[in-house]
């Protein structure tokens, strides 16, 4: 049996908004560690990994490990019915064919429950090894989202290059080219406004902007984003979810034919 209660229900709404366009159906894995998900987009180019640790919930009970297959579009429809200030409780059973979402208003004067049908999803859990990255860039998530949005109006791909000068985002398209360089900047009023570049060696990789833009849907979950780059490895774009866990996106670089 799974029973979890999240006082900050808006967080779960934001999580769904950040994955539903990338993945249609996914298994949510329930364990004593937390509520997690690993899923690929249909073209197997991008992978999303979500962890919401049990300690982050006001109440968390999971008697045994099991998975619940959900259509994320349908789950998003249900969670959109929760108010931003609502407390969300999720209840499910191992082997059950439905999951229940309960929404409580902060003043407890409105309580709603929605039951959603589950689905059988055959998915393989991939082991993602810990890796050393050539460069790790931490920057404000809103800045990264702005860059991806701006560049996608000019080109389809972004070249992310990290050198000792900074991190450069470049694109080219029919109308011209664009280069945006962000330098390390730690002299800011708030730590979340800093751009921090840890570089072991220069790296330059090309990615589809369509996916990067999809990842930036997670920006409301975190003020900062961490981009880990290594040649020969998928990029990792990570948004930490305060005190609860993370959402990580892995994307294969574009390679020459």
């Amino acid at each position: 049996m799974l029973e979890l209660r999240l006082v900050q229900g808006s967080l779960l709404k934001k999580v769904l908004e950040s994955i539903k366009d990338l993945v249609n159906d996914a298994n949510f894995d329930c364990s004593a560690t937390g509520f997690s998900l690993q899923a690929m987009d249909s073209s197997h180019v991008a992978l999303v990994s979500l962890l919401l640790r049990s300690e982050g919930f006001e109440h968390y009970r999971c008697d045994k490990n099991f998975s619940m297959g959900m259509n994320l579009g349908n789950m998003s429809k249900m969670l959109k019915c929760a108010g931003n200030d609502d407390i969300i409780t999720i209840k499910g059973d191992d082997g059950g064919d439905t999951i229940t979402f309960m929404f409580e208003s902060p003043s407890q004067d409105k309580i709603a429950d929605f039951e959603m049908k589950l689905m059988d999803i055959d998915s393989e859990h991939l082991g993602i090894p810990e890796a050393e990255y050539h460069a790790i860039v931490r920057m404000p998530s809103a800045e990264f989202a702005r860059i991806c949005k701006d560049l996608s109006s000019i080109g389809d791909t972004v070249i992310i290059s990290v050198t000792k000068e900074g991190v450069k985002f470049s694109t080219k398209g029919d109308i011209g080219t664009a280069n945006i360089v962000c330098r390390q900047n730690t002299t800011v009023d708030k730590p979340e406004e800093a751009t921090i570049i840890e570089m072991q060696e220069p790296v330059s990789l090309t990615f589809a902007l369509r996916y990067m833009n999809s990842f930036t849907k997670a920006s409301p979950l975190s003020n900062t984003v961490t981009i880990s780059l290594s040649s020969e490895l998928p990029v990792v774009v990570e948004y930490k979810i305060a005190e609860m866990g993370y959402i990580r996106y892995y994307l294969a670089p574009k390679i020459e034919d």
């Binding site: 690929m40 073209s43 197997h44 180019v45 991008a46 992978l47 393989e124 991939l126 082991g127 993602i128 090894p129 090309t206 589809a208 998928p234 892995y250 294969a252 670089p253 574009k254 390679i255 020459e256 034919d257």
Partner: peptide
């Protein structure tokens, strides 16, 4: 004319 790797194959082979 560029290709992208299949992440499932990538992680299964690493």
């Amino acid at each position: 004319n560029k290709h992208q790797a299949d992440l499932e194959k990538f992680y299964n082979s690493h």
